[in-house]
């Protein structure tokens, strides 16, 4: 398989606290040296808790946030160098978590969608434009009646579907889906996920599915990458990681997650949750998970484990493996 997007040692630091005249300024390491390949046509789940850097990484892949270090390659070229080209820009789209923020409240659904279609195809005549919009709506399971509505008149699920439609209007190749169903009620969730999977086939999409919900990962993803304080700690095919996790944090996450339990994932009481993640401003020297790890030893406090291949398709960052 070919990597469509390749992240090489990507870093993003946010200033935290001002310092004095720029001296002694501290940085929160949101993304701290991530290398990751995203293969064409796959659904890659990016999983982590708040502060893990998964959303920041999603924004970087979407080209919304320039990394402070490292490289993002899109089909072998530096993404941030070629992003100015509209055709490249349209190849990577994103949909976000909050339905109330995803649509401009002053625009009707028609305005929102027609803007997206025109961005792709500026010369489109009015009648063709309407045709295209109606086609999009049909795919999304929405009706023409939705066109005259403002976001305030739509339910959360409808808003998310419009946001997805807007992203698809420019015919992307890669879709970053950042917690897109977390704010949507469970009974509506299935519909949106089914839709997303159908669209993935229809549009031959590569998808980066960012979530904290292990049940969703099980339902939709091919591969999973687990992040902890800005780093990837484990990476591999979903079935294998769910049944036989390698990294102690993965084990803790699966043991703690009620939705993972429902799909029969790995549970080990030894890896019951404990402690809190370290501050991203002042993380521990060695392994970032050392403060909560039940199997940590002395060298874990001093030596930072690299993410290294464990088998043909799995990687983990732990000294104990």
């Amino acid at each position: 398989m070919e990597a469509v997007v390749r992240l090489i040692d990507v870093r993003k630091y946010f200033p935290a606290g001002a310092g004095i005249l720029g001296f002694g300024r501290k940085y929160a390491r949101a993304v701290d040296g991530v290398s990751l390949d995203v293969y064409g046509g796959e659904v890659l789940a990016l999983v982590g808790e708040s502060g893990s850097g998964k959303s920041t990484l999603g924004k970087i892949v979407a080209g919304l946030l320039e990394p402070d270090g490292g490289k993002v390659l899109y089909r072998g070229e530096d993404l941030f160098r070629i992003l100015g080209r509209r055709d490249v820009r349209h190849k990577i789209q994103a949909v976000f978590q909050n339905p109330d923020s995803s649509l401009n409240p002053r625009l009707t659904v028609f305005d929102t969608l027609s803007e997206a279609i025109k961005a792709r195809n500026p010369k489109l005549g009015n009648s063709h434009l309407l045709e295209e919009i109606v086609k999009l709506l049909k795919v999304m399971g929405l009706s023409e009646d939705h066109l005259v509505k403002y976001p305030g008149e739509l339910s959360g699920g409808e808003k998310q579907r419009i946001a997805i439609a807007r992203a698809l209007a420019v015919e992307p190749e890669i879709l970053v889906a950042d917690e897109i169903v977390s704010s949507v009620d469970v009974s509506v969730r299935a519909h949106i996920l089914n839709l997303l999977m159908d669209l993935k086939e229809m549009y031959k999409l590569t998808m980066i599915f960012i979530t904290h919900d292990m049940g969703l990962v099980w339902a939709v993803a091919d591969r999973i990458a687990i992040m902890y304080t800005g780093k990837i700690v484990e990476e591999g095919p979903v079935e294998e990681v769910f049944k036989d996790p390698l990294h102690p944090y993965t084990k803790m996450l699966l043991t703690s997650s009620p939705s993972a339990k429902l799909v029969g994932a790995y549970v080990d009481e030894k890896f019951k949750a404990r402690g809190e993640p370290p501050s991203p401003i002042d993380p521990p020297k060695g392994c970032k998970f050392v403060t909560r790890c039940p199997i940590a030893t002395k060298e874990c406090w001093t030596q930072e484990p690299p993410l290294k291949p464990v088998s043909a398709n799995r990687k983990a960052a732990c000294l104990k493996i």
Partner: peptide
Amino acid sequence: VEDYVAAAKLLGLSSWRIMLRH
């Protein structure tokens, strides 16, 4: 910081257009 502004950037709209319309 609203997501619809990010979405407008993803569409490749110009800064002026985003400022005036969104």
